[in-house]
Simulated assay, not measured.
Amino acid sequence: MPAATGSTSHRFLLEGDWVLENVDRHRKQLADALAQLLQSPQPECQVELDLARMTDIDACGCQLLALFLMGLGRQGVTPRLQDMPGELREKLVLLGYDDVLAGGEPTGDEAR
């Protein structure tokens, strides 16, 4: 839905277990989302990722999500993460991906 400033807003629901066994399915989901965004690029595009239904995440899921967020950043889009369950936030911090989810670039081992 376009906002009053002429910007465009997109909301994507990410759900399920973001673990090694499901990485192909989620990679396709994120590729489809990126393709949708790139079809009609807007100068002030807003992207919200709804994480309320994400039930689990491991290092593979973290890396996939981090790469997607960085890809959006390269397109000039700053995504907002919405409704992240507390357990997932704790896992992301434990796995070293809290800086990426805060909008930064990965540091240390997870950058590889």
Rank of each mutant, 00 (worst) to 15 (best):
C62S: 14
L67I: 13
T55P: 07
R27F: 09
N22F: 12
V100R: 11
H10I: 05
R53G: 05
Q82P: 00
D98C: 03
E44L: 10
L69G: 07
M70H: 14
M54I: 15
G108P: 00
R74T: 04
R74L: 07
D56A: 12
Y97T: 00
G6K: 13
L51M: 15
K28Q: 12
E90M: 10
T8Y: 01
R80G: 03
S9C: 11
E90V: 06
R80P: 00
D99S: 08
S7A: 08
R27K: 10
V77S: 01
D99M: 10
D58V: 07
V23A: 12
A52T: 03
L95C: 00
G71N: 10
E21L: 14
W18H: 10
D99W: 14
D32L: 11
V47G: 07
I57M: 07
L95W: 00
A4N: 08
G86P: 11
S40Y: 05
L30Q: 03
V47E: 07
M1D: 01
R112L: 15
P85R: 06
Q42D: 14
Y97D: 00
P41S: 15
G104E: 08
E21Y: 06
D109E: 07
L30C: 13
G103Q: 02
R25G: 02
L94Y: 09
A66Q: 08
D50M: 06
R89D: 02
A59C: 10
Y97W: 01
L14F: 13
R25H: 12
R27H: 14
G6F: 01
G61T: 13
P43E: 14
P2G: 01
G76H: 01
L37H: 05
C45V: 09
Y97K: 03
E105R: 10
D109C: 14
E15G: 12
L94K: 13
Q63A: 15
P41R: 07
K28S: 13
P85V: 00
T55N: 03
L51I: 13
L92A: 02
M54A: 07
L64D: 01
E44Q: 13
E110M: 13
A33G: 07
E87Q: 04
V77E: 00
E105W: 13
E110W: 05
C60I: 06
